[in-house]
């Protein structure tokens, strides 16, 4: 991946003489025994981005996040977070980072507020005098004020997840690392998390959010990277990722053979000759309408150019659409489908 992949990285923090990246890894590798869990991962997360970190369960996302946060050491490779080397500058970096790692974890015998209070004392930069206010604000922000004095063992999974988010928000942060933040949340809660991520990004923070469900974060991300079996298989802005995918033109016409000829002349490869096309089952139009589709390989061929050529050749165009590959298709193509966890 070259720098050219990153046009106009959000250089929000020009005063700091660094690469303008919130997270940068070079050749990051983690082995447990003979098993390589994370393999030569080069991540470049620009400041101000909402960065989706995608991959199926067991693809090495959480291990990568553990290395970013200094919880686990890398077997080889380099990590920089907020322009500083990790883990050597961990004490300076981590107060600026809010994190949710592999699900929430709390003392079940303490209340929600007491748990946040406890974890806040661990941060030497966190002001003791404002602790009570900050805990209350963080609880309010995730909608847990009503359960602040309830013991955590009585919390539902969704409430624990919210409390985990509140913990990440106890201090103003420059970077938030959220590992599967929507896990265990109902659709309403998922939407709230998305809104929260948006508001954090609007406040200038970089948000690095991992998920095995693309749909959950597709709407909020500006960038994404896809992990599969420990390797980074794609990364870039969402538009870049979509563009790599295959687009299709779909044409509805009774004049199948002429249309095929025109498409072939334009350098497209329509569905094989002799195939009568597929009558549209749910078509409200005339019964003699067929669908011809062709992958749009050459991006220089424009939609209006195709339609003009078709009309010029007297093809009765009853419907025409260019279908961009969905990110979902791209994601599935990269990581495989089904429940098989790649080893």
């Amino acid at each position: 991946m070259s720098d050219a992949d990153w046009p106009g990285t959000a250089g929000a923090d020009t005063a700091v003489a660094d690469t303008g990246l919130a997270i940068e890894t070079v050749g990051l590798t983690k082995r447990f025994g003979r098993q390589t869990v994370v393999n030569e991962v080069d991540l470049r997360v620009p400041r101000g981005a909402v960065y989706g970190f995608l991959g199926p369960n067991g693809s090495g996302k959480t291990t990568t996040i553990r290395m970013l946060l200094g919880l686990a050491g890398a077997t080889s490779g380099r990590v920089r977070v907020l322009g500083e080397d990790m883990p050597s500058r961990l004490q300076q970096v981590l107060p600026r980072v809010g994190a949710l790692v592999e699900g929430p974890a709390f003392y079940p015998f303490l209340s929600g507020a007491a748990n946040l209070h406890r974890l806040d004392t661990a941060d030497r930069f966190a002001f003791g005098r404002t602790r009570r206010t900050r805990v209350a604000e963080a609880l309010d922000r995730v909608g847990l004020s009503h359960a602040a004095t309830k013991k955590v063992h009585a919390y539902s999974l969704g409430m624990k997840q919210r409390l985990g988010l509140a913990n990440a928000l106890l201090m103003p942060r420059d970077l938030l690392v959220l590992d599967e933040p929507t896990n265990g949340l109902d659709p309403q809660g998922t939407r709230e998390v998305r809104n929260l991520v948006r508001s954090l990004a609007a406040g200038g923070a970089t948000v690095f959010v991992s998920s095995h469900l693309l749909a959950e974060i597709e709407q909020v991300c500006t960038h994404a990277a896809v992990m599969s079996a420990g390797s980074l298989v794609a990364s870039g802005t969402l538009d870049e990722l979509r563009r790599v995918g295959q687009a299709f033109v779909r044409l509805q016409t009774p004049d199948v053979d002429i249309a095929r000829g025109v498409l072939l002349r334009l350098g497209l490869a329509p569905t094989a000759a002799g195939d009568p096309g597929h009558p549209l089952a749910d078509d409200a139009g005339p019964a003699d309408t067929y669908t011809v589709s062709a992958p749009l390989v050459d991006r220089r061929v424009t939609a209006e150019g195709i339609v003009a050529s078709l009309v010029a050749a007297n093809v009765r165009v009853r419907g025409f659409v260019v279908e961009e590959a969905s990110l979902e298709d791209r994601f599935v193509a990269l990581t495989g489908e089904g429940f098989d966890v790649v080893q």
């Binding site: 553990r66 946060l69 200094g70 919880l71 961990l90 004490q91 981590l94 107060p95 980072v97 994190a99 790692v101 592999e102 699900g103 929430p104 974890a105 709390f106 003392y107 079940p108 974890l119 806040d120 661990a122 941060d123 030497r124 913990n167």
Partner: peptide, 18 residues
């Protein structure tokens, strides 16, 4: 065992201090 260790360490509590 509770999992709170990782949250104490990313706070960061500091391993020696903890």
């Amino acid at each position: 065992g509770l999992g709170t260790l990782r949250y104490l360490l990313v706070a960061p509590a500091g391993r020696v201090r903890l």
